[in-house]
Amino acid sequence: MRELRLIAALARVALMNAAQYRASFLVDLVTGAVSTVGIVLPLALVYNHTERIAGWSFHESLLVTGFFLLLQGAVGLAVEPNLSAIVEGVRSGALDYLVLKPVDAQLVASMQRIAPAKIWHLLAGVGVVLWGLSALPSPSLVASLTAVVLFVVGLFATYALWVLVICTSFWFVKVDNLSYLLVAVVDAGRWPVTVYKGWVRLFLTVVIPVAMVTSYPALALLGRLGPWLAVQGVVVAIVLLVISRVAWLLALSRYTSASS
């Protein structure tokens, strides 16, 4: 109950904060559109020359692309703004005040900011998924639910990864570049995972499980995701969340507040 009240208070503040920047709604409308075109257009160009890539037709690939846009949108909406604020807080020492509050610092630090303008990216993602589905047999209810659940689980896995990167900032102080690296790796998720072979595929599904967030929900919608893979996705997410929690607690316990 207490946590719920705290979450409500945090959401209120995050929204008020975001409302200060009305211009970003327009800016993100444009960047959302540009990045959608930037991802869909190359895909369309490649499919001009071939029917299938690694077994995926154009409209099947659009599902992956749609989930990728949704992932970008969700990370930009709620994950990235908070975690970059933590990095900044470690550097400036502003985290001091948070650490001295009788609350779970991870909960508060993960919910202080929100970028509602990223809603455009989410809408674009939904649009692209629907476009893909329009030319495919409509998925069953179970398949649709599985896809949604796997996507949400995948989001938590992505959050956990970001937290792990952030935790290193408690040691190395300046890690903004690391999160750019992560963004670059996440970018690999825009292609169906079966395009990748061997170690790379394993890396993208288990270590940095972006494939899980984009390809698995698409496979579920297509009715091609075995139950074993669905379970694997959930397990990977839980393991990552546990590891990131432990890393966070460890990092916090050795937090040394910066300057005076």
Binding site: V13, M16, Y97, K101, P102
Partner: peptide, 22 residues
């Protein structure tokens, strides 16, 4: 250092602290 949230009124930081200290 400051704990007040920069872009919104101080009253909102106070409300947030109320929730944090329950």
């Amino acid at each position: 250092k400051q704990q007040l949230l920069w872009d919104i009124p101080a009253r909102e930081t106070f409300e947030l602290n109320r929730a944090m200290y329950d």
